[in-house]
């Protein structure tokens, strides 16, 4: 509740012209935006671009936010949609060989300071990228964002049954891929 009041106050200040209020909102949510985008897309550059796009959408649309959901849910929905769009564009570009995918796979994760964390992250990131997008999406929301199936259904617009089925398959594949760790 306190968080809701805080978001509400920040939005109100921003609408009244306080640009620093937007900065504070951005700093509050930027890491969650980044990590969701990163897990969905599998690379830093795309995740970075998505963060910027989501902040731009927030900046332009925050005035019309009606608090029908929490601000975080709204931000999360935008981030997820942008990530899916990016993946679709990426798959088209790779189909026409417009993108050097192989270079991106060897990109350094230099946004993570700790080496041990970096290695663990690479392991899970590599496994996530082998999942089909719809399985990856529900797996990330369920296990990293700890959302209920009802919440995931509201965000993605997919039925709970479909989500459970996709998650079941995703979990089995991840277990298989990380079998010997």
């Amino acid at each position: 509740m306190h968080d809701l009041n805080n978001d509400f106050e920040l939005i109100k200040s921003f609408i009244n012209g306080d640009e620093s209020a937007f900065n504070r909102l951005a700093v509050k949510y930027q890491e969650r935006i980044y990590w969701h985008a990163r897990r969905m897309t599998g690379n830093h550059l795309d995740a970075d671009e998505i963060v910027q796009e989501v902040l731009m959408v927030l900046y332009n649309k925050l005035k019309t936010f009606e608090f029908k959901s929490t601000l975080y849910t709204w931000i999360f929905t935008i981030t997820n949609t942008r990530s899916i769009n990016y993946l679709k564009k990426k798959s088209l570009r790779s189909f026409f060989s417009l993108d050097e995918i192989s270079n991106r796979q060897f990109e350094q994760n230099d946004v993570i300071d700790d080496i041990e964390s970096k290695q663990k992250f690479q392991q899970i990131e590599s496994a996530l990228q082998k999942l089909p997008v719809k399985q990856r999406e529900v797996f990330i929301m369920r296990n990293f964002d700890e959302l209920s199936y009802e919440e995931i259904s509201k965000i993605t617009g997919k039925s709970i049954g479909t989500l459970k089925a996709n998650h079941f398959h995703a979990l089995n594949k991840i277990k298989e891929m990380i079998k010997y760790e």
Binding site: N23, Y34, Q52, M56, F144, L171, K175, I178
Partner: peptide
């Protein structure tokens, strides 16, 4: 086992430099 691996990566923080650069980049782009 899977849950443990996920938990270990769930709360990884971004580097300070990158974290601070996000809003600066956004303002410049805007």
């Amino acid at each position: 086992r899977i849950n443990r691996i996920i938990d270990e990566t769930k709360n990884i923080r971004l580097s300070k430099d990158y974290s601070e650069s996000i809003i600066t980049k956004f303002r410049r782009r805007k």
